[in-house]
Simulated scan of single mutants.
Amino acid sequence: MSLITLTTDFGTKDHFVGAVKGAIYSELPDARIVDITHEITPFSITETAYILKNSYKSFPDKSIHIVGVDAELSPENKHIAILLDNHYFICPDNGIISMIASEINPTQIVEINIHDRVESSFPVLDVFVQVACFIARGGSLGVIGKEIQTYKKMTEIQPKINSNETQIIGSVIYIDNYGNVISNISEKLFTEIGKGRNHRVIARRYTFDKINNKYNDIVNYEIDENRNHYDGERLAIFNSAGFLEIAIYRSNLNSVGGASSLLGLDYRDTVMVEFY
């Protein structure tokens, strides 16, 4: 039996997550369901794209990923099912898939067409669950919809490069649980454009002359016995997902604070790398 994951902005206070799981178990009593997260900022497509890109690869091939963010059906927001990198994604066609598909071309995309039989204001429950269970039973994507060749792309997920390749101009796409600020500038792009040149990172009025490999690279273990005084120091790092992050060392939102609050950085703010 395939594994089914859930990524939504439903939170856990209301009945929505429980209802979706109940519907899956009603169709597939032996199903295996994993919650990736239900704490997406409501309707945040870029946040969803970042989390999906950095979580789906940890699951087995043929896993089925239900994505319930900004999922209400409309003429501009159709529902699609995608086979990509040997994983299935059932989601709205609102750009959520852009970050994954920017590096790996989808094998197959279909526009889901079971809406003629299902009228719903809760499509994750009434449509996405049906599609996921059909695929889990071995069903073909071609049966649930007509094949299409394109999907909606989100240009804001991709950083820009100036004409003489001396700047990568990115933006904040995610703020994590520690208040660390993640940009859309990947280490791969940094390496390709930088070509080993000197560089600095600029975020608002703050400049970073070094990009660290680990958070504790800022600590001098040879001469500092009291390492607590590094707590709260700001740094730039390529995080475990391979994206440029502005962080506060050993940040704690209840005491020290995070990079977002301490440096005044928020979603869509500019983060730039300059080469010289």
Rank of each mutant, 00 (worst) to 15 (best):
Y230S: 02
R200Q: 14
E165C: 10
E192A: 12
V219N: 04
E233M: 10
E192S: 14
D209N: 13
E103C: 09
T107K: 15
F243Y: 15
I109E: 00
N113F: 06
D176C: 04
I218H: 00
F243M: 04
R234E: 14
I173Q: 04
F122S: 02
A132P: 01
N228H: 13
T155G: 08
K210E: 11
V118I: 15
G138H: 04
F122W: 05
L235V: 03
T166P: 06
I248W: 00
I223T: 15
S183A: 10
I185K: 08
I218Y: 00
I248L: 00
G194Y: 06
L141A: 03
Y151C: 03
I182P: 02
R227W: 09
G142Q: 08
A241D: 13
V110I: 14
N180D: 14
I223R: 11
T191L: 10
Y230L: 03
N228F: 13
G196R: 10
S240L: 09
A136L: 05
N226A: 05
A132E: 01
N216E: 11
I161D: 07
I237R: 00
D224G: 06
V181C: 01
I161K: 05
I114Y: 03
S163G: 05
Y215W: 13
D116L: 08
D231C: 07
N212S: 12
Q158D: 11
R205Q: 13
N113R: 07
E233R: 11
G170R: 04
I148V: 13
A132F: 07
S121Y: 11
V127K: 03
I135Y: 05
A203V: 01
E111M: 11
A132R: 02
I175Y: 11
I114S: 03
F243S: 00
D224V: 08
T107A: 13
E156P: 10
F208W: 00
I246N: 01
V143Q: 09
Y206H: 12
S140Q: 09
R197T: 08
E245L: 01
Q158W: 11
E165D: 09
E245H: 04
H229R: 13
N113P: 00
V131A: 09
S120T: 15
F128K: 01
G196W: 08
F128V: 02
R117T: 12
T107S: 15
E222P: 01
V219A: 03
T150E: 15
H229P: 02
S140A: 11
N113M: 08
S121R: 10
Q108S: 10
A241M: 08
P159C: 06
I211K: 02
R204N: 15
N164W: 10
N113S: 13
I112P: 04
T150I: 10
G242C: 07
K146D: 13
F238E: 04
R117Q: 15
E222A: 12
K188L: 04
H115F: 12
V219K: 02
G139C: 06
I135V: 12
E103T: 12
K153V: 14
K153D: 07
I237W: 02
V110G: 04
N184Q: 12
G138A: 06
V219E: 09
E111Y: 13
G139K: 05
E192K: 14
Q158K: 15
I211L: 04
S171H: 11
I148N: 08
E165V: 08
T150K: 15
I182G: 01
H229V: 09
R234W: 06
I148M: 09
I104E: 11
P106S: 06
F238Q: 02
V110F: 07
